[in-house]
């Protein structure tokens, strides 16, 4: 009962309340409150995440599993960053309250937290992001070898859009007079036709489908039809 029925009841009730609340101006702001509660919940849940991170890495180190040295690096960088940020190590005092250390700002590289953000986190994440340039290239390369019509359509469109975005596209099509019947073949018109007509149409249908899918998934959960996520049945 406690383990099976009550969670489903809670789920349905909270779902129905949120749906109905949207239709009354008095309760409309309930969703904002719920979002702020969720943020707090997610904040406290970090205890679980941190506990798991510590447990996994400590276990790796203590049992000397392959790669335990890397687990130690993760563990040390996690702990140093966490402690430095919690005690605001090296923070610049707040000008109006220099006597309250924890009111200081740790955003500049003067503070350990700011330094780690500027010289560790930010370059690492930016480089991971930058790797995408290579992956885009290799994905395109492989998809070109695919022999079906759909893949060619995808890559062909991508290639044309890429061409017209850079100067080369304009150079190739500039000779077409802008007021002739073939003006639609000029780079800027091709881009406009593909993005404004075809892409917009595709996107609209995708969005309509997603909206219905979202609604149906929500309904299945709220009505208790889909119990895969929670119930121990």
């Amino acid at each position: 009962m406690l383990k099976r029925v009550i969670p489903l009841v809670i789920l349905s009730a909270s779902g129905l309340i949120l749906i109905l609340s949207y239709f009354s101006p008095i309760t409309e702001s309930l969703s904002e409150t719920v979002v702020s509660w969720f943020n707090i919940l997610a904040g406290v849940a970090f205890v679980l995440g941190a506990g798991n991170l510590l447990a996994v890495n400590l276990e790796k180190i203590s049992s000397r599993r392959p790669g335990w040295a890397y687990a130690a690096i993760t563990l040390v960088s996690f702990c140093v960053m966490l402690i430095a940020g919690l005690v605001k190590w090296g923070a610049v005092p707040n000008a109006d309250h220099p006597n309250v250390h924890l009111a200081g700002s740790q955003d500049s590289t003067q503070a350990a937290y700011g330094w780690a953000y500027e010289y560790v986190l930010s370059p690492l994440t930016a480089t991971m992001f930058g790797l995408l340039a290579f992956y885009v290239a290799s994905a395109a390369f492989r998809a070109f070898r695919a022999k079906n019509f759909e893949a060619i359509l995808l890559l062909g469109t991508a290639f044309i859009i890429l061409l017209v975005q850079i100067a080369l596209g304009a150079m190739l099509t500039d000779w077409i007079p802008a007021n002739s019947a073939f003006a639609f073949l000029r780079a800027e018109s091709i881009k406009a036709i593909v993005t404004e007509t075809f892409q917009t149409a595709g996107m609209r249908a995708i969005m309509i489908g997603i909206a219905l899918g979202t609604a149906a998934t929500s309904l299945r959960l709220i009505l208790g039809i889909d119990r895969a996520a929670l119930a121990k049945d």
């Binding site: 969005m207 979202t214 889909d226």
Partner: peptide
């Protein structure tokens, strides 16, 4: 999109 939501 919608196929993903219908998957489960």
């Amino acid at each position: 999109g919608e196929e993903f939501f219908a998957a489960s």
